[in-house]
Amino acid sequence: MTRAVGQGDVVRSTDIGLTSVSVDRAVATIPASRLDEIVGRHALVDLSPGQLLGSRSVGELRVPSGRARVGLRLAAGRLPTVSLPAGAHVTVVETSPDKDAGPVSNLSTVDAVVVAAPKATSDHGSWLVDVEVDSSNAAQLADLASLDRIAIVERGQ
């Protein structure tokens, strides 16, 4: 590295220098022939000037900037019975706090993308699913999830 690059920042061609080194096979380095695989990707760790780049130093961010990942626990009947694969576009719907009050018209919705297919809990009474949402919706969604007041609807793209 020719200069410091913070975790999450994009690595530019001017951030990288080329050098010849002799290292043990246990030391992971990136050959100069793979430079195009590094430029434009994100630093997954803080990178310091003079540091050799390892294969796990750069890549794609787990959660893109401006997005958030929220884990949900849903009772049976609160998500489609058909498989929801990773990448499925869904709407997370706030459910009514009072089951006897009838339909409520001002409940919130949040568009989301399924991160991984839902998994049944060990007691098979509910499902666990991670969704990615706009970061501005994450706190509200996490709060509703903690109150067991959400359902998922799969939507077309």
Rank of each mutant, 00 (worst) to 15 (best):
W127Y: 15
T2Q: 12
L53I: 03
T19I: 08
L141A: 07
S122N: 09
A138V: 06
P49H: 05
R12Q: 08
V23E: 09
A88K: 02
G50R: 06
S20G: 14
K119E: 12
R56C: 11
A151G: 12
S65H: 10
A117Q: 12
V39H: 09
V93N: 14
V21H: 11
S48C: 10
Q51H: 06
E60V: 14
D9F: 10
I38P: 08
V133M: 02
V133R: 00
Q157W: 02
D148A: 13
D123Q: 14
V70D: 09
V45H: 13
S108C: 05
A76S: 14
A88I: 00
P118M: 08
S33D: 10
M1F: 10
L144R: 02
D130R: 15
L141M: 03
V153K: 15
Q7C: 11
P85M: 01
L128G: 13
P80H: 04
A117K: 07
A142W: 04
S13Q: 10
A88N: 02
R3F: 06
G87C: 05
T14Y: 14
S65Y: 13
A75V: 13
A76Y: 11
L74K: 07
D9Q: 11
I152R: 01
G102I: 01
L52T: 06
Q140C: 05
Q157K: 09
S33L: 14
P49L: 07
D100I: 00
A68K: 01
V39E: 08
S65P: 10
D148T: 03
V21W: 09
R78P: 05
A138H: 04
D46G: 07
I16E: 15
Q51P: 05
W127D: 14
L79T: 03
V90D: 09
L107A: 07
L35C: 04
R67C: 02
S20W: 04
D98W: 00
S83Q: 09
G156V: 01
D46M: 09
A139H: 12
L53W: 07
P97V: 00
D123C: 12
P85H: 01
V82A: 11
A151C: 08
G125L: 14
S48H: 14
D130T: 07
I16R: 13
D134H: 08
V114T: 03
V90Q: 07
A88T: 05
L147Y: 10
G50P: 01
A139D: 09
K119Y: 04
S105Q: 12
G59N: 04
S108Q: 04
A4E: 10
R62D: 08
P85I: 00
D98C: 02
T121Y: 01
P85Q: 01
V82M: 10
A151F: 07
V104W: 02
R69I: 09
A112H: 01
D98Q: 06
A86E: 04
W127K: 03
S57H: 08
V92R: 01
G8K: 06
R155Q: 11
I16M: 13
I152K: 00
P103N: 04
N137I: 05
H89C: 12
V104N: 07
R41H: 14
S55W: 15
S105V: 05
A4P: 13
T91P: 08
L18V: 15
L35A: 06
V23R: 12
V39M: 14
A120Q: 08
L44F: 03
D9I: 04
